[in-house]
């Protein structure tokens, strides 16, 4: 199901928590929304998921406008979406399978159907036989699996994830993201994934929007954004990616005034050598490596370019002509 947001606004007193957000979230994709703490991500997801009404603007699921529904219709519409949270938000008073049964109970489905569907869902999330387990006895990853099963119980077309992996360790995060991707494909879901971690975007999302102070500052296909980040916030997120440090080898702790990013096939071309031949520039490489972003290879190189400013400028021009993204970096990363 496609989701369309038109100029959404939500204020808390004088604070513009969400400040004019327009987005097209295509159906059948994993759509990331990334932003720093306080950027307005949770507020935005509450607006999109009909938990809160916007002060201004419109939300559409497909062609249906959903931000101004009357109460009864609102409740019916909410029963068609799934949502998972950072803190899992499972019912402590219910065991795993009773948690999964809840959304079906409130729609008054019959007991036999609920029982059958609960078994299926437990299997889907890899928790066969754990249905009777009290929630408190489950690990974080298992809790999120129960929450995913619960969210999928009513066969939604849209799944919202608000920081769904932020409380999990890196390994569990990868497993949960893989599960979400797998389910997305299997059920043709539209997944809206809110996060403050660029690795979540890299590992799970097809498209991403970057939210800062309530506004979308950048939007696009994930590999494009990684290759050519435009806004300072996006650049910050990308350079904060821990795996960059892991996969990029650093020879020298000194400087490195430029960050070069190469995409796809260019990773294999002898671009640096040909630029050297053409302009006489000297490259002093401080760090280099390859990042894989959603199946696309992006080469990263941190380097000084000499011998002087003029030749460096020529070299940068030549690099850019070759399709390499060149950024001046203050202190490398």
């Amino acid at each position: 199901m496609q989701i369309t947001l038109k100029n959404l606004k939500r204020n808390y007193a004088s604070l513009h928590a969400v400040d004019g957000v327009s987005l097209d979230i295509p159906s059948n994709t994993v759509y990331g929304i990334i932003g720093r703490s306080g950027a307005g991500k949770s507020t935005l997801v509450r607006l999109i998921s009909m938990l809160e009404k916007p002060d201004q603007g419109e939300v559409y699921y497909g062609d249906k406008r959903v931000d101004n529904l009357p109460k009864d219709e609102l409740i019916q519409e909410r029963r068609k979406i799934g949502m998972i949270f950072q803190n899992f938000n499972l019912f402590a008073s219910r065991n795993a399978e009773e948690n999964i049964a809840y959304p079906m109970e409130i729609c008054h489905m019959d007991k036999e159907h609920i029982k059958k569907r609960t078994e299926e869902l437990l299997a889907l999330v890899g928790l066969e036989g754990r249905g009777k387990a009290p929630v408190s006895t489950l690990s974080g990853g298992q809790k999120q699996r129960v929450a995913i099963a619960r969210a999928l119980a009513v066969e939604p077309q849209i799944l919202f994830c608000d920081e769904a992996t932020s409380a999990l360790d890196p390994q569990t995060t990868r497993a949960i993201l893989a599960l979400i991707k797998e389910i997305q494909k299997k059920m043709n879901l539209t997944v809206v994934m809110i996060t403050h971690q660029m690795e979540v975007v890299r590992d799970a999302c097809d498209r991403v929007a970057v939210l800062d102070a309530g506004k979308i500052v950048e939007e696009g296909i994930v590999s494009d954004i990684f290759e050519r980040p435009q806004s300072p916030v996006t650049k910050e997120f990308i350079s904060a990616l821990t795996t960059v440090h892991d996969s990029v080898v650093r020879w020298s702790e000194d400087g490195g005034h430029y960050t070069l990013r190469f995409r796809g096939t260019k990773t294999g071309d002898p671009i640096i050598s040909s630029v050297t031949l053409k302009t006489g520039a000297v490259f002093n490489i401080r760090a280099a490596g390859v990042q894989e972003v959603d199946g696309t290879e992006i080469g990263v190189m941190i380097t000084d370019i000499g011998p002087d400013k003029q030749i460096a400028a020529e070299a940068i021009k030549a690099l850019r002509n070759e399709g390499v993204v060149v950024e001046e970096t203050e202190e490398g990363f």
């Binding site: 409740i75 909410r78 803190n87 499972l90 402590a92 008073s93 809840y102 959304p103 409130i106």
Partner: peptide, 26 residues
């Protein structure tokens, strides 16, 4: 936990269902 109540609301619980099936049991 208000998060649990928010989850129940997001799933389309009526207020009565939130009181009877969530708040009181929790």
């Amino acid at each position: 936990d208000p998060g649990v109540v928010q989850a129940a609301k997001a799933m389309g619980s009526t207020n009565w269902q939130i009181i009877v099936k969530v708040l009181i049991p929790e």
